[in-house]
Write a protein that binds this DNA or RNA. Structure first.
Length: 417
RNA sequence: GGAGGGGUGGCCGAGCGGUCAAUGGCAGCAGACUGUAAAUCUGCCGACGUAUGUCUACGUUGGUUCAAAUCCAACCCCCUCCA
């Protein structure tokens, strides 16, 4: 690999997005000469995207920032099949209605990261169901199926993994890579798209598309992958107590989102700042160099910057301020989860176990009980020692709420109404 | 179609008539230590219940037995080999 000359590849390499490329020099040249249209496909398996997809989203953002045109490909059609990559077994099939509603949820995420419109470098969103749904089986097989060798397909990791583990792989799923390859060709024809990007687990699928373009239509297409993201200690990213770290505010409260980034491991701070924020390199280098407890400042910047992209600057600042009040002053903060409770109920006394469950700090009575037994539960910052303890009106503090805490970091406010 | 193997908690994976809510690992939660970090150590980790307890769970449905994740039958699904 030579030093990239184009702004696009320079940016992607510098920001840590680069893992592999089918033809680095050629893509570099193309990006230096004109607008490159590139796409990344997204599954519609959930009604939001989570941080696992954030590298991909940011890759599209970098593409646009570098003066090129991003396409968000919604896998409306391919989701009806299910990508076998990285899956031990077949996912259950989703209904078409579910896919449609998932797609609507995902669309909202992208508005925060890309500028959509009709201009030359404006982002557009397309759905591969538009062309996959109407495919004629026989003619499709004759035109494109002949370019795929089963011998080769069997050697792909996504397939091999299943076979090696003696896990079933249905013919339906086996076709996924063919259709994804076909998507690329179709996007080239419809929109002049010459670049497909994705996570490194998509390498095989992407290469298929590039090769199909060459074999079936003599086209020169490029593939580019980003590293799969794990934390410095090797864990997969994106999990919290309450589940995946979603990018939609209605799936994960912005405060939790901010907290997720605030709790980044030390060794990841620099890498994440490059990947997930727009901060200039100099600023990142400065933050990254902080040592010991000082690195916490960098984590706050990281959390606020990432939240600003996902939820807007105003909300991000509010979350930073809430966190400061809650953690550094021990106060209650506006943005904590608020759960309402009827005043008469409260007057009669409510069991704390019940309250923790209602507040979402425990998923079952048993879990709340365990939390209390393990000294992890607090009410208004006082440890709860008796699981039969009740909360009453006397527990409402000067802010007019009852503050519940689970562990050190999870808080909720009970508001009498 | 034939022969053999298999389906266990979020995942991996033991158990192969009672002592099984089910060993162990991963993931998760809490406590200690810290910096709202990592690593480490400790405890917890199906639901309900203050609790001796009750209920639900080992592919599905029946059966044998005082007693079944464990035995039997049928069915469903998967894998391997043969045709």
């Amino acid at each position: 690999m030579t030093e990239p000359k184009s702004l696009l590849l320079k940016t992607l390499v510098e920001r840590g997005h680069f893992h592999q490329c089918t033809d680095f020099e050629a893509l570099d040249k193309a990006a230096g000469e004109g607008i490159v249209t590139g796409y990344i496909g997204f599954d519609c398996t959930a009604d939001s995207l989570h941080v696992g997809s954030l590298v991909q989203i940011m890759t599209l953002r970098r593409l646009q920032q570098s003066g090129h045109k991003p396409i968000v490909l919604m896998g409306g059609g391919t989701t009806r099949i299910g990508d076998p990559s990285g899956k031990d077994e077949a996912r259950s099939l989703l209904t078409d209605e579910k896919i449609a509603s998932n797609m609507a949820g995902i669309r909202k995420v992208f508005d925060h990261y890309l500028t959509f419109g009709d201009g030359p470098t404006d982002a557009i969103m397309v759905n591969n169901n538009d062309w996959l749904d109407g495919l004629q089986y026989i003619s499709f097989l004759r035109d494109y199926g002949r370019h795929f060798s089963v011998n080769r397909m069997l050697s792909f990791d996504s397939v091999k993994l299943r076979l090696d583990r003696e896990q079933p792989l249905s013919f339906l799923e086996f076709n996924y890579m063919i259709l994804q390859g076909y998507d690329f060709l179709e996007l080239r024809r419809r929109l002049g798209c010459t670049l497909q990007m994705g996570g490194s687990d998509q390498w095989g699928n992407i290469v298929n598309g590039v090769e199909l373009g060459r074999r079936a239509a003599g086209l020169e297409l490029y593939g580019f992958t980003s590293p799969l993201l794990t934390t410095a200690s090797g864990a997969k990213m994106g999990k919290t107590a309450s589940g995946a770290v979603w990018l939609n505010a209605d799936k994960l409260a912005p405060f939790e989102f901010w907290q997720y980034w605030r709790n980044t491991e030390d060794g990841d701070v620099g890498r994440f700042l490059r990947l997930f924020t727009d901060l200039p390199e100099g600023e990142i280098a400065r933050l990254e160099a902080l040592e010991g407890a000082g690195i916490n400042e960098a984590k706050k910047v990281l959390a606020t910057e990432v939240t600003a992209l996902a939820h807007g600057r105003a909300i991000a600042d509010e979350m930073a301020e809430t966190a400061r009040r809650v953690f550094e002053e021990g106060a209650t903060g506006e943005a904590l989860a608020r759960i309402e409770i009827a005043r008469p109920d409260l007057a009669a006394g409510v069991g704390l176990i019940d309250l923790f469950v209602r507040a979402g700090l425990a998923t079952s009575n048993g879990e709340a009980r365990r939390l209390i037994k393990g000294n992890g539960a607090r009410i208004n910052d006082m440890a709860v020692t008796d699981e039969r303890q009740q909360a009453g009106e006397a527990d409402v503090n000067s802010d007019g709420v009852i503050k519940l805490t689970a562990g050190k970091k999870r808080h909720a406010l009970i508001v009498p109404v």
